[in-house]
C-alpha cells in the first residue's frame, strides 16, 4: 500500500513538476516575463483553455470523450457576441438550451450504447453549423460586463492565476468533495457496482455531460471577454488541447481517474509551453502544435518510467 501511495503522489506531482519546469525555462530565457504583467499577458488565454479542459475532464471521468467541445466553445462565443449582448434573456435561454442538449447527448450515448467519439464528432459539425447560422462571419461585440470582468486586474495576484485557482478549487470540490461526485467518478470506474448500489447510470451520464456543457459555456464566455469578438472557428483547437490537458494533468482515459487540479495545471503548462516559451527561445510558431504533442509524449513517458521503477521495487 505504501508503494502505491508513493506512486500516486509522484503521479500527482508530475503535472506540477512539468509546469514548474516550463516556468523555470521561461525565467531563464526571459526573466522579465516572470512578473504580474508578464503572467497576465502570458496566461490570459489559459483561462478559457482551463475551463474547456475541465469540461473535457467531466466527460472523460465517465469513460467518454468529447470531440465537440472546441466547436461548442465557438458556438457559445457566437451566441455571446450576438444574442447575449442584444437580447440577454434570449441569449441566456439559448445557452441553457445548449446545456440541455448536452445532457440529452449523454442520455443518448448511454441508452443506445453508442461510442461517444462518433456522436460528439457529429455534434462538432452541428455546433459549428449553428455557430455560422448565428454569426455568419467573425465579428460582433462582447457584452461590456464580460469584457470588463476579463480586464479586471486584482491586486498582487494576476487574474489568470486567480481564475485558474478558482476553477481548480470549484471543480475539485464538485468531483472530489461531494458524495455525488464520487458516484460520478464511480460510473467511470465501475459502472456495474454503481448500478447495483441503486444509482442511476443514466442520471450520472447526463450530469457529467451537463457539467461539461456548463464549463464549455464558461469557456466560450471567458474567451470572448478577452478577444471582444466572436468567431465560429475560434475554439477549434480547444478539442485537442483539452484532451491533452486532462491527460497531462494525470487523468486516465478510463476508470474515472481524473484530477481537476492536474487538469488545470496541464492546461496552464500547454498554454505557456506552446506559445510563450517557444517565442522566448525563438522557435517559429509553426512548431506550437508540435510542441504540445512532444510535451504530451514526454510526460507520458515519464509516467511510464515512474510506474516501471515502482514495479521493480
Amino acid at each position: 500500500m505504501l508503494e502505491r501511495g508513493y506512486r500516486r503522489l509522484l503521479r500527482a506531482v508530475l503535472p506540477a513538476l512539468a509546469l514548474l519546469l516550463v516556468l523555470l525555462a521561461i525565467a531563464v530565457f526571459n526573466s522579465r516575463a516572470i512578473s504580474y504583467f508578464g503572467f497576465t499577458l502570458m496566461l490570459n488565454l489559459a483561462i478559457p483553455i482551463a475551463l474547456a479542459t475541465i469540461a473535457q475532464m467531466f466527460v472523460i471521468a465517465g469513460n467518454d470523450l468529447d470531440l465537440s467541445i472546441g466547436s461548442f466553445v465557438g458556438f457559445v462565443s457566437c451566441v455571446g457576441v450576438t444574442w447575449l449582448r442584444d437580447v440577454p434573456p434570449i441569449g441566456i435561454a439559448i445557452l441553457i438550451a445548449s446545456i440541455v442538449i448536452y445532457a440529452s447527448l449523454g442520455a443518448l450515448i448511454y441508452l443506445r450504447a453508442i461510442p461517444s467519439i462518433i456522436v460528439t464528432l457529429g455534434m462538432s459539425f452541428v455546433w459549428q453549423g449553428l455557430a455560422i447560422l448565428v454569426l455568419p462571419s467573425p465579428g460582433g461585440a462582447t457584452p461590456d460586463w464580460l469584457a470588463s470582468t476579463m480586464a479586471y486586474r486584482p491586486p498582487w495576484i494576476p487574474l489568470p492565476v486567480l481564475a485558474a485557482l478558482l476553477i481548480a478549487v470549484v471543480a475539485q470540490f464538485a468531483l472530489m468533495g461531494t458524495s455525488y461526485g464520487t458516484i460520478l467518478r464511480g460510473s467511470g470506474g465501475n459502472a456495474a457496482a454503481i448500478a447495483r448500489a441503486g444509482w442511476s447510470l443514466l442520471r450520472s451520464k447526463m450530469t457529467l455531460f451537463a457539467l461539461a456543457a456548463l464549463f464549455g459555456v464558461l469557456s466560450g464566455l471567458a474567451l470572448i471577454g478577452i478577444t471582444t469578438s466572436g468567431d465560429a472557428n475560434i475554439g477549434n483547437g480547444y478539442t485537442l488541447l483539452s484532451i491533452a490537458g486532462v491527460i497531462l494533468g494525470g487523468g486516465e482515459f478510463f476508470g474515472g481517474l481524473v484530477s481537476p487540479f492536474g487538469a488545470v495545471l496541464g492546461a496552464l503548462t500547454l498554454t505557456l509551453a506552446a506559445s510563450s516559451l517557444l517565442t522566448f527561445i525563438h522557435i517559429p510558431p509553426d512548431w506550437q502544435v508540435g510542441a504540445n504533442g512532444a510535451i504530451l509524449i514526454v510526460v507520458l513517458t515519464a509516467r511510464v518510467l515512474i510506474e516501471r521503477a515502482e514495479l521493480r521495487r
Binding site: 443518448l108 457529429g122 452541428v126 453549423g129 455560422i132 447560422l133
Partner: peptide
Amino acid sequence: VGVRLLMTGLIIVGVVAAAGS
C-alpha cells in the same frame, strides 16, 4: 454552409443512434 454542417452532423448522429451497438 451553416445548414449544411448542421444537417451533416445531425444525420451522422441520427444514423449512429439508430444503428446502436
